[in-house]
Design a protein around this nucleic acid. Sequence first.
DNA 1: GCCATTTATCTAAGTTTCTTATATAGTTAG
DNA 2: CTAACTATATAAGAAACTTAGATAAATGGC
Lengths: 146, 146
Amino acid sequence: MSRELSISELVEVMGEFTRMNIRLPAIQRLSFTTLSVLHTLATVGPQRLSELTASEQVTQPAVTQIVTKLEREGLVERRPDPSDGRAVLVHITADGAAVVRGRQEERMVRLTELADRLTPAERSRIQAALPALTRLVELHRASGEE
Amino acid sequence: MSRELSISELVEVMGEFTRMNIRLPAIQRLSFTTLSVLHTLATVGPQRLSELTASEQVTQPAVTQIVTKLEREGLVERRPDPSDGRAVLVHITADGAAVVRGRQEERMVRLTELADRLTPAERSRIQAALPALTRLVELHRASGEE
DNA sequence: GCCATTTATCTAAGTTTCTTATATAGTTAG
DNA sequence: CTAACTATATAAGAAACTTAGATAAATGGC
């Protein structure tokens, strides 16, 4: 029943974090979805277009366009899938990985400034909750796959 | 120095939450920004277009278009600002508020399912971190205002 | 009190980022 | 080996932005 946890408060905070995060990509000249594709490739490795279509929840032609754009900018590469002649494996390049790292660092700088203004007790409580929050995200991903 | 808190882990989790949240608005026929405007009006009350422009971080003409669209659908109303003849105050309607509530509830249902699969200890730790996370969001908003 | 400047919003036109519909080519099953 | 399916691409149009510029109300010297 989730009695120990106020879901409405969690939804509220998650929503605010989303709104806080969503406007940062504008700094780079890449859209949210484009950056999300890049992030996926950086963290889970080379993917087919069809896999990206599923995980990013946009249409397949949209992914084709995003990958084409990223390829023009040298951030990803299309390589044939040796196991399937129809398929394409999208690989992130060194430049692409650098973009992802750069964004992650921007956010860390920003969040560090903010976290420094919390009390030590507040920081500890967030730290203590991180494994559980990570599990929550994993449960979400797992349930979205099948 | 935020020594008690791993910022990189927090950035990671926040990013995943963002990706998890961002694809839900697709259910409704309203874009992320449009829903964000509606959410702002629901939580902070009537706002000028210029105030919305600042908080949503899109250009002013974009806000004009969003408000026009929301007005056509009966989710907000434009009213003159009694204190300034140039300005417009955007008010959310009952229908608009219902859309915001509906989305909030969708997310609660979804998150409740996921949270039920955590252990009681995990739920407690998230609960214990909520005030600190809320403070973090408030610090962010405060620093973005001046 | 009047004019120049600033502020709040709107309009127009173009760009980016998606969508739906359809084509093409490789794979698989009977 | 062909019919059905799957993976990606292409084309055309819709949606959600952008920049540039117009309009109208407010403000601040003078």
